[in-house]
Deep mutational scan, measured.
Amino acid sequence: MTTFKLIINGKTLKGEITIEAVDAAEAEKIFKQYANDNGIDGEWTYDDATKTFTVTE
């Protein structure tokens, strides 16, 4: 398992979430479901060097 981080730069929600996932594809699926569940819709980026996803509304 690898640790992945999501940085949320939303209009109403900001913060960071860290999860353990098998790979970046699994982490992205989990993070996008979390964002969808919380009404966050924005532009996604991923930095493989730091294993960090960012979503900006």
Rank of each mutant, 00 (worst) to 15 (best):
Ala21Gln: 01
Ile30Met: 05
Asp48Arg: 01
Gly42Cys: 01
Gln33Arg: 09
Ile19Asn: 12
Phe4Ile: 03
Thr2Ser: 05
Thr3Pro: 10
Gly42Gln: 03
Glu26Ile: 09
Thr54Gln: 04
Glu26Arg: 02
Thr12Cys: 05
Ile8Arg: 02
Ile8Cys: 03
Val55Leu: 10
Glu16Gln: 13
Glu16Ile: 10
Thr18Met: 09
Gly15Pro: 11
Tyr46Val: 02
Glu57Leu: 09
Lys14Glu: 02
Asn38Glu: 10
Glu28Thr: 12
Tyr34Arg: 11
Gly10Leu: 12
Gly10Ile: 14
Thr56Ser: 15
Ala21Thr: 04
Thr3Ala: 07
Leu6Trp: 05
Glu28Trp: 08
Ile30Gly: 05
Thr56Trp: 04
Thr3Ser: 08
Thr18Arg: 08
Ala35Tyr: 01
Gly15Glu: 07
Lys14Phe: 07
Glu16Gly: 04
Thr50Cys: 02
Thr18Leu: 15
Phe31Gly: 15
Ile8Ala: 06
Thr18Asp: 08
Gly15Trp: 07
Ala35Asp: 00
Ile40Val: 04
Leu13Asn: 10
Asn38Ile: 04
Lys14Leu: 14
Gln33Tyr: 08
Ala27Lys: 00
Asp23Pro: 01
Ala35Ser: 11
Asp37His: 10
Ala24His: 13
Asn9Val: 11
Gly42Ala: 08
Glu16Trp: 07
Thr52Ser: 13
Asp37Ala: 15
Glu20Phe: 02
Glu26Leu: 04
Asp37Arg: 11
Thr18Glu: 15
Asn36Cys: 03
Glu26His: 13
Ala49Tyr: 02
Lys32Trp: 08
Lys32Thr: 09
Asp47Ser: 08
Thr52His: 14
Thr12Leu: 11
Asp23Gln: 03
Ile17Ala: 06
Ala49Asn: 09
Met1Val: 12
Lys5Glu: 05
Ile8Thr: 07
Gln33His: 12
Asn38Leu: 06
Phe4Trp: 06
Glu43Arg: 14
Gly15Val: 06
Ala49Trp: 03
Glu16Leu: 07
Ala49Ser: 13
Glu16His: 14
Glu26Lys: 10
Thr50Gly: 10
Thr54Asp: 06
Glu28Asp: 09
Glu57Trp: 13
Trp44Asn: 00
Thr12Ile: 11
Gly42Lys: 01
Lys29Val: 14
Ile7Glu: 07
Ala49Ile: 08
Leu6Phe: 10
Phe53Ile: 02
Asp23Phe: 08
Asn36Asp: 05
Met1Asp: 10
